[in-house]
Design a protein around this nucleic acid. Structure first.
Lengths: 334, 334
DNA sequence: GCATTGTGTGGGAGCGCTCCCAAAGCATAT
DNA sequence: ATATGCTTTGGGAGCGCTCCCACACAATGC
C-alpha cells in the first residue's frame, strides 16, 4: 500500500503539498492539485485513517450504543443513524449494551475512550454522571435517544403524549372500558419510554373521568408478548375491555392475533390502537400513533454534529412529532 | 487525557518499559509492572487506538457489510457477530450495502481501505474480483456469510437441503399438491439463498415424481409479502394447494395469517412449513427448518480469526447444520 | 523606489504508540 | 579470570499523516 510520500514523489511535490492537495486546506495551484490527484489515483492511494486520526485528533467515527438489534424500533433507528453518518463521512462503531453492569463499566472505562470517538449516540440508556465524566475526558460529545436525560442532548418522541393521543382516540369513539397492554415497570429495554406511555394512558383516562377503569396487563414488548398478554386479558369474558391501547405496535399486533384466535372480531368487538406505525401495521389495518425511528436516528446524528461543531453550546432536547394514523382496527363503541 | 509518557514518568520508568508492562510482550519485573499499572490507573490512562494501530499495523477492528438491518436474519446475525467480536476485543464497524452500485464502489474503493481493518465480514453479497483485489492490497481477510463464493471463506447453511427437508416432510405426510411461497429471482436482498431454496423444493418434488405439481408464488421475503402472496395463491379455491413451503418463516407466518383470514384452518386444510425458526415461530406453532443466524455470526468471526492468524491457509467453506422442527402447522393429508 | 499583501511550496516537528537494539546487571559455567 | 546466558531497562527510530512556519515570488499600494 502506498503512502502520501509515494504520491508526493510521483507528482514531484513535497508531502506537505500533496497533503494539502488531497485533503483540501491551504493554497495549492490548480494544476499542482490535479497532478497530485492523478498520482494518487495511479497508485490507488488511500489515506491511512489511523495516521490521519493521530495527526488531527479527529477519528471520523461515531460510536453507537444499542441495547438490542432485533426490535423494529432499534433496527430502524440504527438504519437512520447509518444513513445520516454516511453523509458526513463518519464511520459507525457499534457497541451492544445488553450485557451486565460489568460489561457496561468496561464499555465506558475502556472501549469508548480508547477509540477517541468524535461522538457517541447512546440509545435507550441513561449514562451515569461518572460515565459522562469519562466521556468528557476524551471529549466525545454525547446524544441520547429515547432516554430522558438531564444535562445531555437528546432526541425522542413525547411518549406520554403519544399514549394520550391513542387513548383519547378510543375515548372519543365512545369507549370507557379501555385497557393498556404490554410493557412493565422492571423491563430493562426501552423501559423508560414504556413507563411514560403508561402514564399518558393513565392521564387521558383520568382526564375523561375514567380513572376507575384503568387496567394494565403487563407483558414483554414483542408480538408474542402481546399475544400472551392479550390471551390473559381477553380470557375472562366478563372482564373484557372494549378497547385496548398497546404499548407498541408489536404488542398491538400480538393482541389482535390473540383476539382473532379467541373469536373476537376487530374492530367490531374490540378496538386496538398501537404506538409506532410499524412496517406491519398496514397489513393488520392497525390504527396507531406514528413515530419515525429513522428520523430520530437522523436527528440524533444532526444534533451530534452540532455539538461537535460547538461543544460548549447548551444541551438540546429535541422532541419529534407523532401523529395519529387511523386505520380500521378501531371503531365506535356499539 | 494522559499519554503513556505521563504514565512512565509517574512510575519512574521509560516509555518502552511502560509499554511492555501494559501491553504484555517482553521482559518486565513483576514489581515494575505493578508500579506501571498503578500509575496508569491513577491517571485513568487508556491507550490511544490510532497510535497503537499506526505503530502495530493492526486496527483491532472488523468491518461488517450488511444489506439490511430490519430483517430477523440479519439482526440475529449481527448480534452473533457482535458477541463473538467482544471476546477477541475487536470493535465492529458497520457498513450498509443497500444503496446503489455507486455507493458500493465507494465502499470498497475508499471506506474500507481507509480503515486498514483487521478483517471484513460481508453478508449476503458476493464481492467481485476487483473488489477482492482492493481488499488484498490493504490485506484485510474476508469472510462471506450467506453467499456462495468461490475463492473466499464463507459460512452459510445448505439452503437447498433446508428446502428439500421441508418439502420432503410435507410429501411424507401424503401431500402432493405442494406449492412454494415467496422469494423471487430478481430480488437483491438475500437473493442467492432464496434461489437455492426454490431449487431444493423443485428437486424434492421431482425426486418424488411430483415435478408436474411444482408451483411458485413469488413475493417479498417479509410477513406482509407472504400475506399478499398467500392471498393470491389461496384466492382461487379450485387451484388451492394442500401444503405450502415458504421461503422463510416471515413469509410462512404471513401465509398462515392469510389462510386464517380466508377461513382456512391450519393445518387441517392447509399445511405450512417455513425455514428459519424465527422467534415468532413458536407463537404460530410453525413447523420449520431451523437455522441459527447467531451461530452463523459467531462462526463467521471464528473463521475470520483463523484467517487473521494464518492468512495463507486455503479458504474454508463452513456449512452449518439445519434441522426440521415439527410443530403443528403441518399435518397428514386428509 | 520600498513596504505590503496574496499565493504557492517545502522542511520538519510532532501526534502517541511499539519495538528493535544496545547496554547493564547478575548468576552460572568454563 | 573470561565467557555465556538470562533478565531487565532505556534510547530512539519510525508508523503515515497534518500543519506550523519560513521562504520565494508576484502583484499591488504608496
Amino acid at each position: 500500500m502506498s503512502t502520501i510520500a509515494d504520491v508526493a514523489a510521483r507528482a514531484g511535490v513535497s508531502k506537505a503539498t500533496a497533503s494539502r492537495a488531497l485533503s483540501g486546506g491551504g493554497y495549492v495551484a490548480a494544476d499542482t492539485r490535479e497532478r497530485v490527484r492523478t498520482a494518487a489515483r495511479e497508485l490507488s492511494y488511500v489515506a491511512h485513517s489511523s495516521a490521519t486520526s493521530l495527526a488531527t485528533g479527529r477519528s471520523l467515527s461515531v460510536g453507537v450504543l444499542m441495547p438490542a438489534l432485533d426490535r423494529w424500533f432499534f433496527a430502524e433507528l440504527l438504519s437512520g443513524i447509518q444513513q445520516e453518518l454516511l453523509i458526513s463521512g463518519h464511520d459507525l462503531l457499534l457497541y451492544g449494551t445488553q450485557e451486565g453492569s460489568q460489561e457496561r463499566a468496561h464499555l465506558f472505562q475502556e472501549l469508548l475512550p480508547r477509540r477517541r470517538l468524535d461522538g457517541i449516540i447512546a440509545v435507550g440508556i441513561q449514562p451515569s454522571a461518572r460515565e459522562l465524566e469519562r466521556l468528557m475526558l476524551v471529549d466525545s460529545p454525547l446524544v441520547c435517544v429515547g432516554a430522558y436525560s438531564a444535562g445531555t442532548s437528546a432526541v425522542s418522541i413525547d411518549d406520554e403524549a403519544a399514549a394520550r393521543i391513542a387513548t383519547e382516540h378510543l375515548i372519543d369513539l365512545g369507549h370507557e372500558d379501555v385497557a393498556f397492554l404490554g410493557g412493565r415497570a422492571d423491563a430493562a429495554t426501552h423501559a423508560y419510554g414504556d413507563e411514560r406511555r403508561l402514564e399518558g394512558y393513565r392521564a387521558a383516562m383520568a382526564a375523561a373521568g375514567l380513572g376507575a377503569q384503568v387496567r394494565h396487563e403487563a407483558g414483554e414488548a414483542t408480538m408474542p408478548g402481546g399475544y400472551e398478554a392479550g390471551v390473559r386479558m381477553l380470557g375472562d369474558r366478563r372482564r373484557r375491555p372494549t378497547a385496548v391501547v398497546a404499548v407498541c405496535d408489536e404488542v398491538a399486533i400480538g393482541g389482535i392475533i390473540a383476539a382473532r384466535r379467541m373469536g373476537l372480531s376487530v374492530p367490531t368487538e374490540l378496538s386496538v390502537v398501537g404506538i409506532d406505525d410499524h412496517e406491519h401495521a398496514v397489513m393488520f389495518s392497525l390504527t396507531t400513533v406514528r413515530q419515525q425511528p429513522q428520523e430520530q436516528g437522523r436527528a440524533a446524528v444532526q444534533l451530534l454534529r452540532e455539538r461537535m461543531d460547538a461543544p460548549d453550546a447548551p444541551a438540546v432536547q429535541r422532541v419529534l412529532p407523532s401523529e395519529l394514523v387511523v386505520r380500521s382496527s378501531t371503531a365506535a363503541l356499539r
